[in-house]
Design a protein around this nucleic acid. Structure first.
Length: 434
RNA sequence: GUGGGCGUAGCUCAGGUGGUUAGAGCGCCAGGUUGUGGCCCUGGAGGUCGCCGGUUCGAUCCCGGUCGCUCACCCCA
């Protein structure tokens, strides 16, 4: 039986797709580097218990888990944060705080595929551990936005919607939501931008057990068009003022970092993961055609739950699948042409040996150099060079060998230049190297 | 887990209401001679019409199942 396809929800990366992936990874790593984050990684297979209590039931329901040959309950990692929490917690004593780490793990979920969601994806994770101040929250979102900028996207293309669970909690308590109904209320509010108002009202009444008065109060919160309006209305409410002040400072820092236009306040952002405790955000395409490209926030209790070490932490994940779609829509993905440096054409059999020697010289100088692996006509070799997108072709025949000079043809312009064989690759070495 | 759409060459797709050798474009390969590509021309290879079963004299076309893809829901990275 021949196998020609991958498992459902898993991707093959042909050179063209891998070029796009590498392009995205390069932007992620560059943004992380500019912000001083160090790269780490962990195992793709983890004990099931790492996720069962910390991430919420829904993630666990869709784990790609199984029993290994040693009878251990294991799972392919669905997210990186618990791994990070374990690693950071284990060496919390020796690591300089705040820890600034990032990773690009491949993550797995067992669920039906749909647009932007597969059973496997790569996710850029950037986290700060050991800093409770709001400056860290701003820094985390800024590095995410920096990556978009590096990929050619602007504040016209994407927007970060930000909220704070502490603020939302204070507002909901003020609206009359009992403390033990907060999670149910969050779940309903999370649907606010997708469902009609009466559906949300219905859920708040049934699932959160709220009365009509409380529900009215809740909708009054979300009726405010922006942060200033909400602040004006609630700044005198006990417990809310300090939350508003913190968010205000947060927006101020992002403005100073040059990302003010990219960020907007949106109290409807809740995020599903159970461990978030503070500022949370999601980044969307402005056209609203795709699901969230990126999401994250503060999770101050998770390290203690996982490792027993109490350290505040925050971070985000940005998946490659939706991002790739967004970049493709905006025509911001590389074409994927290999674009080698040199293709060496041997006119006849005697020159094939010369070509190999030239290739070796070029390769040792750092250039890419290829030639036909079997004897072929000059025309065929040129066609091959052209089809492979090689930048320059060098023709080597009896005349060239005799004179010690070869013709180097620039394939894009068609211009040819005569170069001494010994100095091939030197003249343009600094100028044209990619 | 639930529901909708789709499944014909490597890719994108055509193939009125079932009928004899299933097509196109792109791609691929080979030519258009003797040392120069991209354009053009000619030719060629390549398909159990996803798979299994049913209806029928006969099915790519109808029916059922199955697998896969896809979109949405649930939920969420």
């Amino acid at each position: 039986m021949s196998i020609t396809t991958s498992l459902p929800g898993f991707r093959d990366f042909y050179p063209r797709e891998l070029a796009a992936r590498s392009h995205i990874f390069a932007a992620w790593r560059e943004a992380a580097r500019r912000f001083g984050f160090e790269e780490y990684d962990g195992p793709p297979l983890e004990p099931l218990e790492l996720y069962t209590d910390k991430s919420g039931d829904e993630i666990v329901r869709q784990l790609y888990n199984f029993e290994d040959k040693g009878g251990r309950a294991v799972t392919l990692r669905p997210e990186m944060t618990p791994t990070l929490a374990r690693m950071a917690g284990a060496r919390a004593g020796e690591l300089r705080k705040p820890i600034r780490w990032f990773s690009i793990p491949q993550l797995y979920r067992y669920e039906r595929t749909q647009r932007g969601r597969l059973r496997e994806h790569f996710q850029w994770n950037v986290d700060v551990v050991g800093e409770e101040g709001v400056a860290a929250d701003a820094e985390i979102l800024a590095v995410a936005l920096q990556s978009f900028q590096l990929l050619g996207l602007s504040a016209q293309d994407v927007v970060a919607r930000v909220s704070d669970r502490r603020l939302l909690e204070a507002l909901l308590l003020h609206a009359g939501v009992p403390a033990d109904r907060l999670m149910a209320a969050y779940a309903a509010i999370d649907k606010l931008s997708r469902e009609e108002e009466r559906v949300i009202r219905d859920r708040l009444a049934k699932e959160a057990g709220l009365g009509a008065a409380a529900i009215d109060q809740i909708f009054r919160i979300f009726a405010h068009p922006d942060f200033e309006s909400l602040t004006a209305a609630y700044r005198d409410v006990p417990g809310v003022a300090e939350e508003l002040a913190r968010l205000g400072e947060y927006f101020g820092i992002l403005g100073a970092l040059g990302f003010g236009a990219w960020v907007t306040f949106d109290p409807r952002i809740v995020r599903g993961l159970a461990y978030y405790t503070g500022i949370v955000f999601e980044v969307f395409d402005r056209k609203g055609e795709l699901r969230a490209v990126c999401g994250g926030g503060r999770y101050d209790q998770l390290l203690e739950q996982v490792s027993g070490v109490s350290l505040p932490a925050l971070g985000f994940g940005m998946g490659d699948v939706v991002l790739r779609e967004l970049l493709a829509d905006r025509e911001l993905l590389p074409s994927g042409e290999p674009a080698g440096d040199y293709y060496l054409v041997a006119v006849g059999e005697p020159e094939r040996r010369v070509v190999r020697e030239m290739a070796t010289r070029l390769r040792r100088a750092g250039w890419s150099a290829i030639y036909s692996l079997r004897a072929a006509g000059v025309k065929a070799q040129f066609k091959d060079a052209n089809a492979r997108g090689v930048r320059r072709v060098v023709v080597v025949g009896p005349d060239e060998v005799a004179s010690g000079q070869v013709a180097v043809r620039d394939m894009a312009s068609g211009a040819e230049e005569r170069v001494r064989i010994e100095s091939l690759g030197e003249a343009t070495a600094t100028a044209q190297r990619r």
